[in-house]
C-alpha cells in the first residue's frame, strides 16, 4: 500500500489535465512535416497548395540528390580525384546525414509506445480517466433518480432506467470495448450499442462540437426521432453540472448558466430519452468541446 503522497497528488491534480494555448504556427509546421512524409500520396491526389508542392518538389530533388550521392559514394570509394563530382557528392551526403536521423528515431519510439499499449500495466492516466468516469456515473445516476419526472416514468412503465443493461450499453466503457473489437478501420459503425437506440434516435449522438459561431456544428444536441423527448445534463470532468437542455431548446452552446463560455475539453453528458409508447433509454457519454 502506497502511503499518501501530497506533493504528487497536488501536481497530478493541477497538471494532469492542464492545457497550454498552442500557437497556430505549429499546425502549419506539422502540415509541412507531414507533406514531406506522405509525398507519394500527396502528389497523386494533387490537392496540395502551391507552397507545399514547392516543398514536395524540393524534397524530390533532395531525395534524388541523396540517390546520386549514395551511388557516387559507392562507386567513388577510395577515389577522390574527381573534384567537381566529389563536391556535389559532399553536398548530397551532408543532406543525407541531416535526413536520416529524423526517420530512424520515429520507428524506435513507435515500437516502444506499441509495447506500452500491449502491456498489461498500461498507463495510470487511463486508469484515472476510467475512475473519474465511474465517479461521474455515480453522480449522474443519483441526479437522475432524484428527478421526479423520471421516477414517475419508471413507475408507470415499470422499466428500471438504471438497469445494468441500459447503463452498460451506453457507458463510455461500452464505447471503449466497441473500439477494441473494431480492428478494421472500414467497419461500419453499426454496433449493438447503436441498434438499441435506433427507435429513439435518428443517428449516433455526436462526440465533438465546435461552438465558435461559424454556423457549423455550433450546438451539441441529441438527434431524437419525431415525438421523442429528452432531458440532457452536461457535466464537467470535476462533476460540476454545466448545462441542462431538452428537445424544446436547440442544444448546448458551450456556455454554463450565466452565459460564460466553458473551456475547451471533454465533458460528460447523460441524457434520458423517451417516447410516448414507453420506450426509454438513459445514455451516457462524452462530448468534446473545441472552439
Amino acid at each position: 500500500m502506497k502511503e499518501r503522497d501530497e506533493i504528487a497528488e497536488l501536481f497530478k491534480d493541477l497538471l494532469e489535465h492542464h492545457a497550454e494555448p498552442v500557437d497556430p504556427a505549429i499546425w502549419a509546421k506539422v502540415q509541412t512535416g507531414l507533406a514531406g512524409k506522405t509525398l507519394g500520396v500527396a502528389a497523386a491526389t494533387g490537392k496540395l497548395t502551391g507552397i507545399i508542392k514547392l516543398i514536395a518538389v524540393s524534397s524530390i530533388l533532395v531525395g534524388s540528390a541523396i540517390g546520386v550521392g549514395l551511388w557516387l559514394h559507392g562507386s567513388n570509394k577510395g577515389d577522390k580525384t574527381e573534384s567537381s563530382e566529389a563536391n556535389s557528392m559532399d553536398n548530397a551526403t551532408v543532406k543525407n546525414e541531416v535526413e536520416i536521423p529524423e526517420v530512424e528515431p520515429i520507428e524506435n519510439t513507435i515500437q516502444v509506445s506499441e509495447a506500452d499499449n500491449n502491456s498489461s500495466t498500461g498507463m495510470a492516466n487511463n486508469q484515472t480517466e476510467t475512475s473519474s468516469k465511474l465517479t461521474m456515473e455515480e453522480q449522474v445516476s443519483t441526479s437522475i433518480t432524484e428527478n421526479p419526472v423520471n421516477q414517475t416514468n419508471q413507475a408507470q412503465n415499470n422499466i428500471i432506467t438504471n438497469s445494468p443493461e441500459a447503463g452498460v450499453s451506453a457507458s463510455p466503457k461500452a464505447i471503449d470495448s466497441k473500439n477494441n473489437t473494431n480492428q478494421s478501420p472500414i467497419d461500419p459503425p453499426n454496433t449493438t450499442a447503436e441498434k438499441n437506440h435506433n427507435i429513439l434516435l435518428t443517428s449516433e449522438i455526436p462526440n465533438i462540437f465546435t461552438p465558435n459561431g461559424d454556423g457549423k456544428n455550433d450546438l451539441f444536441s441529441i438527434p431524437v426521432a419525431v415525438n421523442v423527448v429528452h432531458t440532457t445534463k452536461v457535466f464537467s470532468q470535476k462533476g460540476e453540472l454545466i448545462a441542462e437542455f431538452t428537445q424544446a431548446s436547440s442544444g448546448w452552446d458551450g456556455t454554463k448558466t450565466g452565459g460564460t463560455e466553458v473551456a475547451n475539453g471533454t465533458y460528460f453528458y447523460v441524457t434520458f430519452v423517451s417516447d410516448q409508447v414507453g420506450n426509454q433509454k438513459q445514455i451516457k457519454g462524452t462530448i468534446n468541446l473545441v472552439r
Binding site: V30, G33, L34, K37, T38, I106, T109, I110, S113, E114, D116, N117, N118, G122, M123, N125, N126, E129, D176, N179, N180, N182, Q183, P185
Partner: peptide, 25 residues
C-alpha cells in the same frame, strides 16, 4: 510528436483512449 501521431495513427488499435495513446507518443 504530432507528425509521429499522424504517420502512425493506423497502428492505434483502440486499446485505451486515443488521448492516452497520443500522450504516450
Amino acid at each position: 510528436g504530432f507528425i509521429k501521431v499522424f504517420s502512425k495513427i493506423e497502428l492505434f488499435r483502440g486499446q485505451g483512449s486515443l488521448e492516452g495513446w497520443i500522450k504516450r507518443i
